[in-house]
Write a protein that binds this DNA or RNA. Sequence first.
DNA 1: ATTGCTTCCTGAGCGC
DNA 2: TGCGCTCAGGAAGCAA
Length: 269
Amino acid sequence: MPELPEVQCVVDTLKPINLKEIEDVIVLDKKLREPVQNDLKSNLKDKKILEVQRRGKFIIFKLNNGFIVSHLGMTGKFLIQKSIIENKFNRIIIKFKDNTYLIYNDIRKFGFITYENNMEDNKYIKKLGIEPLSDNLNGEVLFNLSRNNKKNIKQFLLDQSYIVGLGNIYVIELMYLCGIDPLSKAKDLTKDICNKLSSEIKRILTDSIKLGGSSISDYRDANDKEGSFQDNFFAYGRKFDDKGHKIERIKQNGRSTYYCPICQNNNLT
DNA sequence: ATTGCTTCCTGAGCGC
DNA sequence: TGCGCTCAGGAAGCAA
């Protein structure tokens, strides 16, 4: 579900919890992707939230002592509430000393929250690749990363150890925008396509963040507000593109790919 | 070392 | 109305 823009919008809307102190943690369901730690409550009690950051699709809450690391999976949400709004998918409730709440709500339970004493060598974070909105990503870096890479291009872009933050939707959109045949291999990318891809990655992610991300069904920010970037999709979920070309839908590695066989042929026009 | 299939979980939407 | 099927912003874990 949430890809980089959605996670960034959650992080941005979590700003009001900065400097709040945790009074209590109520675990309603321990069976998340990463089972809720037995000592989560004791580790979080009396801690102060200093800052909320994003790394890839992970959310990192920096505390005065230690960190919370979280991933939203497909349907995870963080919601700031003045009083608890009952919902059967609320999984963890963090109560602050000012009597406001941070709710972790997750229908499918593919997300998680863990407490970490330090972030050095964190098993999730240490595997992550380049932040696409940083200067560390450019066409040349992308070209070098994809050399000799036999993965198909979609798998390559989805792999969080190369570039972080892209998920199924944005990869589909990017391949459409750059005229990339989804059946081609990463090593088939030319320098020109890598340059184009790099700039389109930055543009589409930035544009989506401005529009509050994409809400397909479940995604909401910490204020329970929807994004609107889904109105700007060129390929994902469409039957025809803007040119009237039929959009084909195929399965790649178990996930849907929408693409235009006419336009997506790896030739820059 | 890679590739690709299955798994975790719940709900929506479809055809019959 | 209800059943059975497929699909859904992710990604670890496994077998081949």
